[in-house]
């Protein structure tokens, strides 16, 4: 294969697949971003559950986290993908509605990815919560702050600094895990590469191109992480 044909395969417009790959990359970024927001929110709730003094809640969140940590992401994603439809239909049937509603693939992928993300994020949050020195908490309490004030004014602002490196790692994992959505035929980057490679029978070109785009996405994330960490460490770094 000569270079010219590679360029024409990856060209933009009707003849090449370059624009399709970029459209897929945009879906990948959206999928990762939405899953990040949902996963962070869910992760905070789970961390609350783990730190809660109420035993059953503790036990429940721990079980969930063990399940996610020991089960392949791929399996969780498929379970959610097929399971959500069933859940929706059962609810509809319970309400007496005959429904053939299908959960959109994007929503199913977001649900699966943020469930996975939240389990790991809750560990990071828990670690960050416990990393705030007790001396500070005692000092804040001694000055007459309520428990709520201690949490919002002392703990939370500092948790961010402790949690950032861990969350940044999880973001990288999440970004790469979005590729699993290709298997449920969501038109993200890898799926676009698959469609292109199967219709042209040139898989090497398209999978390498997809890999290169993922590499750009992770490299950009890496730079952003570096900047954020410098910002979060301001005033603390030596």
């Amino acid at each position: 294969m000569n270079n010219e044909s590679v360029f024409s395969l990856l060209a933009f417009g009707d003849t090449g697949w370059g624009d399709d790959l970029l459209a897929g990359a945009w879906i990948t970024v959206q999928l990762a971003a939405v899953s990040l927001v949902c996963g962070l929110a869910l992760g905070l709730l789970l961390a609350g559950g783990r730190l809660s003094p109420w035993r059953p809640l503790n036990w429940l969140t721990n079980t969930y986290i063990i399940f996610i940590r020991g089960t392949p992401e791929f399996l969780v994603l498929l379970l959610v993908f097929f399971g959500l439809d069933l859940v929706v239909q059962q609810i509809a049937a319970g309400l007496g509605i005959q429904s053939s509603f299908e959960v959109p693939k994007f929503a199913a992928a977001v649900a699966g990815l943020s469930l996975i993300f939240s389990a790991y994020a809750s560990e990071v949050f828990r670690g960050a919560y416990l990393a705030v020195p007790t001396g500070q908490i005692e000092a804040a309490t001694a000055t007459g702050m309520s428990a709520g004030q201690v949490f919002w004014r002392v703990r939370l602002p500092q948790m961010w600094r402790f949690a950032l490196p861990g969350l940044a790692n999880l973001w990288m994992v999440l970004l790469k895990d979005t590729s699993l959505a290709a298997v449920i035929a969501l038109d993200e980057l890898l799926r676009q590469a698959k469609v292109a490679s199967e219709s042209t029978l040139q898989p090497l070109v398209f999978y390498l191109a997809a890999g290169a785009i993922y590499l750009v996405l992770t490299a950009v994330s890496d730079i952003a992480r570096h900047r954020l960490e410098l910002g979060a460490r301001r005033g603390y770094a030596r």
């Binding site: 298997v183 698959k194 469609v195 490679s197 199967e198 219709s199 029978l201 898989p203």
Partner: peptide, 12 residues
Amino acid sequence: YDTQTAAYSDLD
């Protein structure tokens, strides 16, 4: 195979 097209690829 996960898809018919993936099987075509391997047949090819």
